[in-house]
Design a protein around this nucleic acid. Structure first.
Lengths: 354, 354
DNA sequence: CTGAAAGCGCTTACAG
DNA sequence: CTGAAAGCGCTTACAG
């Protein structure tokens, strides 16, 4: 069968014919290149408009020898969590899909407990002659500075995992942290009786005012407030992430209070689960974040009741694809793409796709 | 920048050079066409293997004038539910992405309350000279017969929404119904006290032994059994889906029993919500299925506590893409793709992507 | 059974 | 400022 007549006609060749110019000139106009008289450009633009011309992306990339270079600037996997494996695997998946179309992806990993390593890697990116960069802007100040320098070099930035809202990025792809906290509180509401007590646990080396864990806590508390819940909410910050330290802090917190539900604001929920199991504590509900192997093991045993997940693999995949779409299709991209807030339990985890 | 040498080399041209044949002959081998001597074929195959040749899909579709035709055979939107709008919109989205690559999609809608309309539309599909068809095999027998005839005509079938497991389809894309029921029970478990009573409500014109609602009920009951829950489980089948009839059945069921949680096995949960609201009943938890506008409205008001959803838009999208991948990339496809089982509440519905 | 040539819709030097 | 021609990696008649 043949393609429809109409389609066969609307191409650079047809535009050139109508405008009485060569296809090279049409190409120049299509790409806003210099060296076309205003008059010619106008005429061609009108015809493009009239014919509702859509370029054939296949042909374009096939003919073009230009290769596009994207950098990925995210944390490496640490002893404490292999969370970042997920976004990375999404990145790799996207890369394998588009690498044959002239896209190169290079990865720069930094230590999320060490700002200096971030700075060092970000400088390498700046030197690498990239068209775009996908980054996790964990360190707000340093990331902000980096993004400014990218702007100077005309490098497009995409944020994943957490956002710097006022920064001039192509887009942000990741959770709405506040709302994940709020949702967690909603679920917790179902598990709590009127006078039950809640313990919020922040486990992180870097808990400062900017830290995104605090946004989850904020959302969590707001839910209780909005719904006039009278449950007491206690809180403990644990800055030393080693298990012994977690254990000590939890013991202290649980000794003086009868806690009915623990909300861990990040993926370290497994160490709390470990503690509860070790101590034989069974009547405490436990909710935390992220689809990690360790967490899932506890979810299966129901030591963890719910995990909140935000498709980290997809974040990596979509991050690269956002750059790809921007450069290859030149089509506009949503400034913010909030990932769904997924509720994972013993019964649906096997069907979960990151 | 130039593409890497390596890439530039591995193409039909290089294979032809190595094999001392023309690229036309290489093309014949690549597509398993006739008219190549066994010896030549063998030699070329070896070189393809050795070079780890991957065809350039862009170039292939660009050069090929072949167009691919897919049919979509799903229910139309009915007075009772606009559920099928969602898969359809996924289909349309996929179509718009791939239509410029020579793919045509044609839609055949049938009335899910009328087997004859299915048969009629399926016959139209058979006559339409399609390469593949995406269908919702609601009517098991009729669908089964249709699939057999497709096989004769060498038309590939993809199932969505519900499966016919032993049928020779390309793949199934949709929920594991049993597990959605099981998960719903798990959530219900958190909402119930020891002696609370549960009411299962099936609202459907077609409740027979094959019907997929029953698989959800089965999973639901199994959870209670597995976890030695003693809650009493009542059940009502409502075959007349008009609101008045639903109202009558519910009134009868609720008059004689104190029900604490109602599980509606499909998207008709909104009519139960409507009833509860009308009667001013506030202490009954309500769980049902599907991300429909009506349901979401009740979810916001918390008349409905949880909705279980299975990304109907994505089912449509992936269904078409499965056919596309099969024909264009000729790459193998998972026989079963179970959709995640999503738990939707008042707090996360705004981030949900179908 | 095999090959030379044209063409898919674009981009890219190069020449004027 | 503009155009003719070659080429991206493949497929498709057509000729032998």
């Amino acid at each position: 069968m043949k393609k429809t007549e109409e389609k066969a006609l609307v191409g650079v060749r047809e535009i050139a014919r109508k405008a009485n110019v060569s296809i090279a000139t049409v190409d120049r106009v299509l790409h806003n290149r210099t060296g076309v008289s205003a008059k010619t450009k106008e005429k061609i633009d009108a015809i493009i408009e009239e014919l509702n011309y859509k370029p054939n992306i296949l042909a374009r990339r096939l003919a073009s020898k230009q290769i596009l270079r994207f950098a990925v600037l995210i944390p490496s996997v640490s002893k404490e969590t292999d969370y970042w494996n997920a976004p990375l695997s999404g990145v790799l998946q996207a890369e394998s899909e588009i690498s044959s179309y002239g896209i190169q992806v290079e990865t720069f990993l930094f230590d999320q407990n060490d700002k200096k390593s971030f700075v060092k890697q970000s400088e390498a990116v700046l030197r690498g002659n990239f068209n775009g960069v996908l980054l996790a802007p964990m360190f707000i100040e340093e990331s902000s500075k980096f993004v400014d320098e990218c702007a100077l070099l005309n490098i497009q930035c995409v944020f994943i995992n957490s956002d710097i809202p006022d920064k001039n990025s192509l887009c942000y792809i990741g959770p709405s942290l506040y709302h994940s906290g709020y949702l967690t509180a909603h679920i917790s509401g179902y598990l709590l009786k009127e006078n039950d007590k809640v313990l919020i646990v922040n486990i992180s080396k870097e808990i400062d005012n900017h830290h995104h864990l605090l946004r989850k806590e904020e959302g969590f508390r707001k839910y209780f407030e909005d719904n006039h819940k009278v449950n007491e909410i206690l809180k403990v910050d644990i800055r030393d992430t080693a298990y012994d330290s977690v254990k000590k802090s939890l013991s202290a917190a649980l000794k003086d209070n009868t806690i009915n539900l623990i909300f861990v604001t990040n993926s370290r929920v497994s160490s709390v689960a470990h503690y509860l199991e070790e101590e034989g504590i069974e009547d405490v509900k436990l909710i935390g974040f992220d689809f990690l192997t360790e967490n899932i093991a506890y979810l299966k045993k129901q030591t963890i009741d719910f995990l909140i997940c935000q498709k980290p693999i997809e974040q990596g995949y979509r991050g690269i694809m956002a750059l790809y779409t921007h450069f290859v299709h030149a089509s506009p991209i949503d400034k913010v793409y909030h990932m769904p807030i997924d509720i994972i339990t013993k019964e649906n985890h096997q069907f979960y796709r990151n």
